[in-house]
Simulated scan of single mutants.
Amino acid sequence: MSSPRKNYFTGQFRHTLDDKGRCTVPSAWRKNFEKEDQFLAIPNPGGYVTVLPPAEADKLYDKFAEVPLGDTEAQDEISTFFASTQAFKFDGAGRLALMESLFSHANLEGPKAEVVLVGGMNKFNIYSSERWAAIQAKSTPATQGNTMRRFGI
Score class of each variant (00 low, 15 high):
residue 73 E to A: 10
residue 63 K to R: 12
residue 52 L to T: 03
residue 149 R to A: 13
residue 100 E to F: 06
residue 72 T to Y: 00
residue 127 Y to L: 06
residue 50 T to R: 01
residue 148 M to P: 10
residue 131 R to H: 11
residue 33 F to H: 10
residue 81 F to K: 00
residue 113 A to L: 06
residue 42 I to K: 01
residue 61 Y to Q: 02
residue 9 F to G: 00
residue 123 K to C: 12
residue 70 G to D: 12
residue 51 V to T: 00
residue 143 T to C: 09
residue 96 L to C: 02
residue 112 K to A: 07
residue 9 F to A: 00
residue 7 N to S: 11
residue 83 A to I: 15
residue 40 L to S: 05
residue 32 N to Y: 12
residue 35 K to Q: 14
residue 33 F to T: 14
residue 140 T to E: 08
residue 60 L to W: 06
residue 15 H to K: 07
residue 9 F to W: 01
residue 153 I to F: 01
residue 71 D to K: 06
residue 53 P to F: 04
residue 67 V to M: 04
residue 26 P to C: 05
residue 133 A to F: 05
residue 46 G to L: 12
residue 153 I to P: 01
residue 130 E to D: 08
residue 20 K to W: 03
residue 5 R to V: 15
residue 152 G to Y: 04
residue 96 L to S: 02
residue 147 T to F: 04
residue 87 A to I: 11
residue 148 M to G: 04
residue 5 R to P: 13
residue 153 I to K: 00
residue 64 F to L: 14
residue 135 I to K: 01
residue 149 R to Y: 13
residue 7 N to Y: 12
residue 93 A to T: 14
residue 62 D to R: 05
residue 152 G to I: 13
residue 48 Y to E: 10
residue 37 D to L: 14
residue 105 H to Y: 08
residue 66 E to Q: 11
residue 30 R to W: 12
residue 147 T to P: 04
residue 49 V to Q: 00
residue 13 F to M: 05
residue 91 D to P: 10
residue 49 V to A: 00
residue 102 L to P: 09
residue 78 I to Q: 00
residue 74 A to H: 04
residue 35 K to I: 15
residue 112 K to V: 15
residue 60 L to P: 11
residue 72 T to N: 00
residue 31 K to P: 14
residue 115 V to K: 01
residue 36 E to V: 14
residue 62 D to I: 07
